Amino acid sequence: MTRGLRIGSIVVNVSDVPRAMAFWTQALGYEPRYEPEPDWVILQPRDGGGPNLSLNLGETRPEPFPHVHLDLYTPDQDSEVERLLQLGASRVEDWPYPEEPHDFVVLADPDGNRFCVIDAPEG
Score class of each variant (00 low, 15 high):
Thr2Leu: 11
Thr2Arg: 06
Thr2Asn: 13
Arg3Ala: 09
Gly4Phe: 08
Leu5Ala: 02
Arg6Met: 09
Arg6Ser: 06
Gly8Pro: 00
Ser9His: 10
Ile10Lys: 03
Val12Cys: 13
Asn13Met: 10
Ser15Thr: 12
Ser15Gly: 09
Val17Phe: 01
Val17Gly: 11
Pro18Met: 03
Pro18Trp: 07
Ala20Lys: 05
Met21Trp: 00
Ala22Thr: 11
Phe23Arg: 11
Phe23Pro: 00
Trp24Tyr: 15
Ala27Gln: 06
Gly29Ile: 10
Arg33Glu: 15
Arg33Asn: 14
Tyr34Ile: 06
Glu37Lys: 14
Pro38His: 05
Pro38Arg: 04
Asp39Leu: 07
Trp40Arg: 00
Val41Gly: 04
Ile42Cys: 00
Pro45Val: 08
Pro45Phe: 04
Gly50Tyr: 04
Gly50His: 10
Pro51Gly: 10
Pro51His: 14
Pro51Asp: 11
Asn52Ser: 15
Asn52Gly: 03
Asn52Ile: 07
Leu57Lys: 13
Thr60Gly: 13
Thr60Ala: 15
Arg61Thr: 15
Pro62Val: 09
Phe65Gln: 10
Val68Pro: 01
His69Leu: 00
Leu72Arg: 09
Leu72Gly: 01
Leu72Tyr: 10
Thr74Ala: 00
Pro75Lys: 01
Asp76Ser: 08
Ser79Pro: 00
Arg83Ile: 09
Gln86Ala: 14
Leu87Gln: 02
Leu87Thr: 01
Gly88Pro: 12
Gly88Ile: 09
Ser90Pro: 00
Val92His: 11
Trp95Pro: 01
Trp95Arg: 07
Pro96Trp: 02
Pro96Ser: 04
Tyr97Gln: 04
Pro98Val: 06
Pro98Met: 14
Glu99Leu: 15
Pro101Leu: 11
His102Ala: 05
Asp103Tyr: 10
Val106Arg: 13
Ala108Cys: 02
Ala108Met: 11
Asp109Ala: 07
Pro110Arg: 11
Asp111Met: 12
Gly112Thr: 04
Asn113Ala: 14
Cys116Asp: 04
Ala120Pro: 00
Ala120Met: 09
Ala120Tyr: 10
Pro121Asn: 05
Glu122Gly: 12
Gly123Arg: 03
